[in-house]
Structure formats: structure tokens, C-alpha cells
Computed example of a mutant assay.
Amino acid sequence: MAVLPPTCARSGATGSNATTVYTVSTTVNDAGDDTNAIQNRINTAGSAGGGVVRLVAGTYIINGKLRMANNVRLEGAGPATVLKAGPGFLSNRGPSGGYPIVTTNNASNTTITNLTVDQSGDTLAASADTDGRLDEYVVDVRGGSNNVVDGVQVKNPFTYSIVAVATTRFCVKHSTTIASTSGKYDQLDGIHVLDSSFGDVISNTIDQRVGTDGDDGLVAHTINGTTHDINYIGNKVRGGSRGNSMQLAVGNYSIYNLTIAGNEFYGAPYGIRTGYYDDATGAVSGITLTGNYIHDLKAGYAFPDGSHDATHIGDFDGEGPITNVVATNNKACAAGKIYVVPGAGNLNQGNFTQDGTC
């Protein structure tokens, strides 16, 4: 099977089609809070039916929580446009009770693009048990539909970096996440898809092992609904010492119709792995694993004994049915075996594994 091209093909997501530009009047690179200046332009653009809220290069201090509006494009000038959590960032919460820098907050047809988002997890007085830390996320695509995150860099997270939650028709592409703290947090995932459908996660770079706190690189997860029809294509993922390069995190709802193709996974204790939570009974089905390169897996906090596998789909206590999982034409080097539990429609063939130096 040929690896699919890295486009938003599964979702068809296009984001905002607005063209009217709304510039933000504020002073960058100073200590002043820029939240209201940006939010006012987002609100104005949204009230007008959509618009491009354009940010120049420089650092914008965010003490509040930015909320997108329908058909708005939030556009920086590149990585030098930085939305940075300020000293007052922990004093208030987002609409879902957490600490996003920017959330779509049930808006549709939005684009967040061409900028850096810095949650200041290296310097803020957040902690592993900060209330609400896992209720919203650094870049939070929540509800609505047809939302795009393109060319966004996430730095210094103290929660998941980029998340699609309870949404449909979304695309996360050409973005970068870095987990660089050590001994401050747990559950720092890179790009996390939760209870969502018809999405694309393509051509991203995830590095969860600059520090020791990084967890899973890519995640498909269910808690309150199914996660299905997602493409994960052409990503480069160094998983963290606390988790996996990619996890299918199964609750009591099913994960199905995922294409995981043409990715590079390395650095975590496991490559692609199923995980089950709270006596989960959800099914896993229709998973295609093809053309992935999984290499140089390492022991970590999660698996200090050094156990690892390039893929480990199924064979855990209490799991729901696992069917129609097809693993073909994958390569594993210094990464253990490629394993798919026997089951109806499951296929594990044409894969290549080797030990030693890759």
C-alpha cells in the first residue's frame, strides 16, 4: 500500500476563508499584557463574519486565554511571533476550566497559523497537580468543525501541547511541539486527539525527550465518545521517557478507521502501542499501519526495565475486541518486534525488523 500524500485529505479541512485583515494595535516585546488587544480584534473580525487577525513578529504577553471566533484566521509572521504566557497566566482559566493560550471554544472554520505558543511551563508556578492542568491544552481545538492548526510551534508546555477534543473535520499540520522540562510535570503529550473524528495529523515534528517530563508523542484517545477516521501521516516523533511514540488510548468507546503511515517513531520505550484505562471495553478496528520507520527505542520512566516493541497492538488484560488491524511494510530497527494480536481481519506481514545499529 502506498503512503498517502501529506494533505488534509481525510478531513477536507480548509479553516478560515476570510481575507479582510485586522491588525493588532499593541506594543510587542514589553511587559504589558497583550491579551485584550488580540482578543478585541478576534471578536471584531468574528462579528463581521470573519477576518485575518495578523500579528507582527515579537513577543506578546498573554495573561488571559484567547478564544477564537467563527471564520477567523489568527496569523503570525513566523516562529518569531510568540504568544507567551505571562506572570498572571495562572490567575484565570479558560472556558473549559484549564489553561489554554488559545482555544477555538466551539468556533468553526478557524485557522491558527505561523506562530510560536509558549506556555512558560519552565518558569510559571504550575505543578504536576495544578487544578485544571489537564482540562484544556496549550493550543485547544475544541468543538465546532473545519478548524486548522498550521505551522505552529509549542514550547514549554505544562499540559498537552496541541489537542483536538470533541471536534470534527480538523487538520494539524507542519507544526512542532517540544517538551523540555525535567522533574516538574507528567502527562505532557505532543499532539493528542480525543473523542474526535475526520481529522488529519500530518507532517509535524514532535520531540518529547528534550527533558525527562515528556509523555506520548501522538495519541488517539476516547473518554466520552469515539475517535475515528483520522490520518496520521508523515510525522517525525521522538516519544518521551514517560510514554510511547504513539498511543491508542482506549476507554469505553471505540477507536476505528485510523491510517498511520509514513511516520518516523523513535526514542520512547514503545513505538505504537494500545493502552487501556478504567476497565475499558472499547473496541479497536480498522487500523492501517504502513510504511512507518520505528527505531532506537529506549528505556524510560514508564518502562525502566528496557522492555519495548516497535508496535504492540492488543494482548492486554480486559481489552475490547481488536479487529481488522493491518500492519504491512513497516521497518523496525533496534526497536523489538512488530506485534499485532491475532484476531478477525488482523494482518501482520511484509514488515522488516533488525537489531543492532540502525
Rank of each mutant, 00 (worst) to 15 (best):
Y301D: 13
G300C: 11
K298Y: 02
G318P: 06
E319L: 13
H308C: 04
Y301H: 09
S285K: 11
L297V: 05
G318H: 03
Y293H: 08
D315A: 13
T311P: 00
N292A: 05
D315S: 12
L297D: 08
K298H: 08
I313W: 01
D305V: 02
E319R: 15
L297A: 06
Y301A: 03
T290P: 01
D305P: 06
P304Q: 11
H308K: 15
H295S: 10
N292T: 05
G318F: 01
T311F: 05
G320V: 03
F316Q: 15
S285R: 12
P304E: 09
G320Y: 05
H312S: 09
D305M: 08
E319D: 13
H312A: 10
H295G: 01
S307L: 11
L297C: 01
G320I: 04
N292F: 00
I287P: 03
K298M: 11
A302N: 12
A310S: 09
G320A: 06
L289Q: 02
F303T: 07
A310P: 06
L297N: 07
G318E: 08
I287C: 05
S285F: 03
T290S: 14
T288G: 05
D296R: 14
P304K: 06
S307H: 09
A299W: 02
S285H: 07
Y301C: 00
I287S: 03
L289N: 05
E319W: 03
I313D: 06
A310K: 05
K298S: 10
D309N: 11
Y301N: 11
G291A: 11
P304L: 06
Y293R: 14
S285D: 07
H312P: 00
H295L: 15
K298W: 01
I287F: 00
F316Y: 02
G300M: 13
D315K: 15
G314W: 12
D305S: 11
G286P: 04
F316E: 15
Y301F: 00
D317K: 13
A302H: 03
S285G: 12
D305R: 01
